[in-house]
Amino acid sequence: MKALGGAEAADSTHPPPRVYKPEMPRGWWLRQRHYFLYIIREFTALPMALWLLWLLYEIQRASNGPKGYYPPSSPAFIVFSIIVLAFALYHTYTFLSLAGVIIHIKGVPSRLIVLSQFAAWLVASAVIAAVLIGFAR
């Protein structure tokens, strides 16, 4: 049986176990679409953490001023950044969608709470983009 593994071997000197304790199969997260999407959601944190570590390193490099600073522009890095951006968008989407489940305000429909989170996200993104573009000019 695929779902039930990890039998304790019962030999002739020991009586068989009173109960059978199944173990989670290694591929449990491939058994269902929902589990798979959950693992993807959790996994997105890892490449995002790597990318953010790199960002900290770049900030440190840029701290000496624009002289001698060259941002990385290799195709591999751009591809990695695009993948991480997709992961970040997916993670953000799942996180903000859950706000309706977590936040409970009497008389306010959960749909409205979720929409307000997405609106706040868009406003924050626009402000950050404006600041960054403004500084770049």
Binding site: M1, L4, A7, A9, P16, R18, Y20, P22
Partner: peptide
């Protein structure tokens, strides 16, 4: 259906 007799079986079977 899963069958498992703790007195006889080492592991469940279908």
């Amino acid at each position: 259906a899963t069958r498992f007799d703790p007195a006889k079986d080492k592991a469940p079977r279908l």
